[in-house]
Nucleic acid binder design. Structure first.
Lengths: 249, 249
DNA sequence: TTAATTCGTGTTTGTTATACACTTTACCGA
DNA sequence: TCGGTAAAGTGTATAACAAACACGAATTAA
């Protein structure tokens, strides 16, 4: 009754979906795939989250990392699982979704999906290797209004999970280049948490974090007082954090 | 490449597993199922988490609620999804696990499981309806050393997730009877968070929570000063909480 | 040389966290 | 009925942290 005895013929498809965040020019962006199709005789375009079916011989985390690698060419990206969704009709609520699945030959079956978000820093030296396919683009988070399937819900949940984690773990640095200014860091927190922060209080807090370290380098070519660059040291962080739950609020 | 196009023949079994917590006599307990089998000619017993395969027409949350209902007879139990695990060999690492699966006729396939924890208060009026099957028993959390399959990892992750949530959401009350004393409440926090708390400071904090309300009733039949009973009001909590993230630390 | 722009800095005040010990109220048993 | 036992209930002083707030310094562009 409570065991894996029953229903042993019941098979599902399992997929991973990735909500890939990036931060540039003071904006939080998300990487989305354009979906094109012929719908009721006219061309129809919309956006969806990148994802793929999980293969039989791979872990869920591995599948998510593979999707990211195929999408961006990048390895070692910050990835966090934040939900599993298995509502039976989740892919079959909208006409256009059913039509699309028909066109790509997807059988009408339940797909349980495991959702991840990932954080990418669009660093100078990485940007070369970082060539996106034509149908994959960054979109400002604030402008996302609608996505395919239940991807809008997944996206909203990802944002919520990101905000929650940002308060208690030093993950903001994953979204910044390896050297960054304190203004960039502050802006990042403001944009993700959706509030403004006091500059002096912010810097006071950061100066109590021994793992945010000034380096011997300043901004160049800006028409104002150049800012000090800092780096984040994971090593120092691991060594100096007091409880498993300190960081920001 | 990134779509559900490929691998469309890949099917998984999907299950839910529940880590059911209870709190009684100052101890945190977990509800486990005894697994019995003939292994290498002798009777072998161990413990596993309750769980079941998800049915084709049900949601993951629905499946978890169903498992709980079948297990305890209770509805409307606090349930929280906290992980999905799909490591291909997760059920096939130990001889005894493979033997057990063989004996119950489980095909050797990948089972992706979605893990939930749930909180039960063992209330006076509920206890009648609450008749556990013979092979289902409460075990003190501190005494769990080994479980079947990867259930020990799932159990440890559940504890971690419970601790994290306890700090920021008023879920402790789910583990207490509807009327409780402040000492019970304090003990609950101490046991789950694994630290002792100062009585006066604890009560000071609680007295700033308008949703923890004294009722016109005291302990009876105790051989010392009887304690005041309190109730938790979800309504008042919803109305009075300031941010989405306040509560305890 | 001046204007424009962003960087970087300290103090005060209020709130919250911590540390700490004794009196009260009930039951029990002699 | 009285003394012992056991847990309940209560206040204050100090330290740490959060919030509010304004101006001089460094650079480029015109």
């Amino acid at each position: 009754m409570l065991d894996e005895k029953q229903n042993s013929g019941l098979n599902f498809h399992v997929s991973v979906d990735c909500v890939v965040f990036g931060f540039e020019f003071g904006k939080l962006n998300v990487l989305l795939l354009e979906r094109k199709m012929l719908f009721k005789g006219v061309e129809f375009k919309d956006l969806k989250l990148p994802g793929d079916l999980v293969r039989k011989d791979e872990d869920l985390d591995t599948a998510a990392a593979r999707v990211l690698k195929e999408l961006t060419g990048l390895d070692n990206i910050y990835l966090r699982q934040f939900a599993a969704i298995g509502t039976p009709d989740r892919l079959y609520r909208m006409e256009r979704d059913m039509e699309w699945l028909r066109q790509i030959g997807h059988p009408e079956e339940v797909v349980v999906t495991v959702a991840y978000y990932s954080l990418i820093n669009i660093d100078q030296d990485k940007i070369n290797r970082f060539e996106l396919q034509e149908d994959v683009k960054w979109h400002p988070v604030s402008q996302i209004k609608e996505l395919a399937f239940d991807h809008m819900e997944i996206f909203n949940d990802a944002l919520k999970a990101l905000r929650d984690e940002l308060r208690f773990n030093p993950i903001g640095f994953e979204l910044l280049p390896s050297k960054f200014t304190l203004s960039q860091l502050q802006k990042l927190y403001e944009v993700i948490l959706g509030s403004t922060l006091d500059k002096r209080n912010f810097r006071k807090k950061v100066s109590n974090m021994p793992y945010v370290i000034p380096i011997n380098e300043k901004e160049k070519g800006v028409s104002h007082k150049p800012a000090q660059y800092y780096i984040f040291s994971k090593k120092v962080y691991e060594k100096t954090r007091k409880s498993s739950l300190d960081f920001f609020v």
